[in-house]
């Protein structure tokens, strides 16, 4: 799980072009949207593609993302339970 979370942080930084953010800067429970990392709805769509491409998880409704993308922790939990690759 720790490994998955590290990997996830790196991928988030990469796909969202978070130039000034390092893996160490993101805590497992930090909010990704709003006050935390400050991501927005376009980022949510980027994360949906990341879930599909890297872990074979298809989310058809952007609203589903809301609970899954709360933090790196919630994302990792969801991926661990649902991944197909």
């Amino acid at each position: 799980m720790a490994e998955l979370k590290e990997e996830l942080k790196g991928k988030i930084i990469e796909v969202l072009n978070l130039e000034d953010v390092a893996v160490e800067d993101i805590q497992d429970d930090d909010a990704l949207f709003g006050d935390g990392l400050g991501l927005d709805s376009i980022d949510a769509l980027e994360l949906i593609v990341l879930m599909d491409k890297e872990y074979g998880i298809k989310l058809s409704d952007p609203k589903q993302g809301k609970s899954i993308f709360q933090s790196v922790q919630t994302m990792a939990d969801y991926i661990a339970a649902n991944r197909t690759k």
């Binding site: 796909v15 376009i42 769509l45 980027e46 593609v49 599909d52 491409k53």
Partner: peptide
């Protein structure tokens, strides 16, 4: 497949 929106937007 696996397209992301940012570039399109």
């Amino acid at each position: 497949q696996f397209l992301t929106p940012t570039a399109f937007i």
